[in-house]
Design a protein around this nucleic acid. Structure first.
Lengths: 215, 215
DNA sequence: GTCTATACAACGATAGAC
DNA sequence: GTCTATCGTTGTATAGAC
């Protein structure tokens, strides 16, 4: 079963955006990369923003599936946190161009702003649910206000980890390894609020992600 | 004594970049805003990046003067922290367009990358010195590694506070009031590491900045 | 659905007169 | 130092044939 041209365009766009930066990729580049004509692309999409919106649809789907709330039988150990963090890194990697200049993307397209608001609400709630699970299990010791603060800081640190890396080393390409550097920052943020009996598990999470760096 | 055209260009550029976003302001816009011709602008600057570099020079000067280390007689109370934070907010406000898309600016201009590296080293050292002062005064209880982490997180949160705000409310313009919203986040970050006798002072800092919101 | 060809706008930048 | 006029390039988007 052949892949529809429309989908090939979306896939190619993601690839090129991630590789060269969304700003540097034109509709012509995408068409050329696929070996189709610019006119053909415009048959399937009204303009470049329309392509981006389609990608955003994929992004939203991916988020929903990868950051699903933990299944009830899994409990609320820090172990499920690994799954959650893995999901975060996976999404960040797959759609890294979005994180590279999100404010700009949103500034240009009102439709995208709406889509983003929806997605963001979902993400934030999932995160809060996750933290509340840890709270209920007496792993995370924080009141309502602290939990809200931690959620916001988590979100901000994760969202702008890639731009931050780009300011530190503007030339080096983003790699999955570099993305993982986010984890220690997040763990450090939460550490003061983790109950002592569970601090060892926190370190275990850190090791889990840093071990992958070695291979 | 009349202001030189060259300087007027730089000043106008800052104003327009801050108001409309650097991406949306062309050399023609700047010239038109000043009532001079495009050709005239190109007599004074080789291109737009050259203008940005000039602005960056101002930025570096301003940083050096506003984030100077505390004078010795001031001691290392949390009170000097207010001065420091005030400086940070002042710079962020004056050159907010820089923070709006720093990765992009750096990505385009190798010269700017070098300038930025210099400036960044200065900023980071000043921050670390400041924290070390608090540490020496037994206000901040943190080992070397924690202090490094806190510095990095401080920097990341401050640098991307504006882009973060832009994702939350892409339409609303950045105001000084919104900038001040950064302060509670920073205080929250440091709170677990502040010695108990000084927690009250921390809250005082918070009040200092939130009181300004009311006026 | 796909192609070729092209119109159109915006921006960066320069030449040459004053 | 400053202006007018203009060129070249690039990216978006459409028209019309196949």
């Amino acid at each position: 079963m052949r892949i529809k041209t429309r989908d090939r365009i979306v896939l190619a766009a993601v690839e090129l955006f991630n590789r060269d930066g969304e700003q540097n990729v034109t509709t012509n580049h995408i068409a050329a990369h696929l070996g189709i004509s610019p006119g053909n692309l415009y048959y399937h999409f009204r303009n470049k923003e329309d392509v981006i919106r389609a990608i955003f649809g994929l992004y939203a789907e991916d988020l929903a599936s990868h950051m699903a709330p933990p299944s009830p039988d899994e409990g609320d150990s820090l172990r499920t946190s690994i799954r959650y963090l893995d999901g975060v890194l996976h999404i960040m990697w797959r759609y890294r161009f979005i994180y590279e200049n999100l404010p700009d993307l949103l500034g240009r397209d009102a439709q995208l702003r709406e889509d983003y608001k929806q997605v963001q609400r979902l993400v934030f709630n999932t995160l809060q649910d996750h933290l509340r699970g840890l709270q209920a299990a007496s792993i995370l010791l924080a009141d309502e206000q602290q939990l809200a603060m931690l959620s916001h800081l988590f979100k901000q640190l994760a969202m702008f980890w890639i731009p931050y890396q780009l300011t530190l080393h503007p030339q080096e390409p983003i790699t999955q390894r570099r993305l993982r550097g986010l984890i220690p920052q997040l763990l450090f943020l939460f550490r003061p609020y983790i109950a002592q009996p569970h601090l060892a598990e926190l370190d275990e999470i850190g090791r889990y992600f840093s071990q992958q760096d070695a291979t």
